[in-house]
């Protein structure tokens, strides 16, 4: 039997909002260490990797490893039925073909359960090579979302240039050209407002805005976002999920024709 409980539905609702527009479906691989999901978007340009550790749940039981193929649009609809402060429990029998979501109101007066059919998804797992990235940028998640949204007005592509001075986001097209330069911060009082750049060597990479803007749907999950870059390898956009895990988006770069 599988059972996982969170005392607050907010985080799970935000996780679904962070992936449901990019992925139509995904397999939740459950084991006693937690829940993993890895899936490519339909165009195979980006990859989402979600990790939720079992010790981050208020109750977690996984008698046997279980892979649950979910239609993420349907799962998001079910989670819309939960209040943020509801307790949410995900339950499934071993080798079941359905999964149940139970929502309990804080005052215990209202208990709802939603059953959803599981799907047989034969999604192959991709190996993600360990990489020592040339540049790692930690910055406010809201700032990154704002830059991606603003620059998407100028072009389908954003050029990210990272040097020891700072990180620059550029886009140019018919409207004109835009450059947003962020310098490393040194004396900020709040950690989550800092811009920290660890640079082994400078990089210049080009990415499609539409995927970056899909990734920023995860912004409500974390104050900070981490961008990891190396020449000619996918960008990693990572949002930590406090006390539970993280969501990592990988985006293949664009190259000169």
């Amino acid at each position: 039997m599988f059972e996982a409980r969170l005392n607050n539905a907010t985080t799970l609702k935000k996780i679904l909002d962070a992936i449901k527009d990019l992925l139509n479906e995904g397999t939740f691989d459950c084991s006693d260490s937690g829940i993993q999901l890895q899936a490519m978007d339909n165009s195979h340009v980006s990859l989402v990797s979600l990790t939720l550790r079992s010790d981050g749940f208020d109750k977690f039981r996984c008698d046997r490893n279980l892979s649950m193929g979910m239609n993420l649009g349907s799962m998001a609809k079910i989670l819309k039925c939960a209040n943020n402060d509801d307790t949410v429990t995900i339950k499934a029998q071993d080798n079941a073909d359905t999964v149940t979501f139970m929502f309990e109101s804080q005052n215990q007066e209202k208990v709802s359960d939603y059953e959803m059919k599981l799907m047989n998804l034969d999604q192959e797992h991709l190996g993600i090579p360990e990489t020592d990235y040339s540049c790692v940028v930690r910055m406010p998640a809201m700032e990154f979302a704002r830059i991606c949204r603003d620059l998407a007005q100028f072009s389908e592509s954003v050029v990210i240039c990272c040097t020891k001075e700072g990180v620059k986001f550029s886009a140019s097209g018919d409207v004109g050209s835009a450059n947003v330069k962020l310098a490393q911060t040194f004396n900020v009082d709040k950690e989550e407002e800092a811009i920290v750049i660890e640079m082994q060597e400078p990089v210049v990479l080009t990415f499609a805005c539409r995927y970056l803007n899909a990734f920023t749907k995860a912004t409500p999950l974390s104050n900070q976002v981490q961008l990891s870059m190396s020449a000619d390898v996918p960008l990693v956009v990572e949002y930590r999920i406090a006390e539970l895990g993280h969501i990592r988006y990988y985006l293949a770069p664009k190259i000169e024709d």
Partner: peptide, 13 residues
């Protein structure tokens, strides 16, 4: 600019 696919970087495990 040509968009590469993620599968040209990450191979099936």
């Amino acid at each position: 600019m040509a968009q590469r696919s993620i599968t040209s970087f990450f191979k099936p495990a």
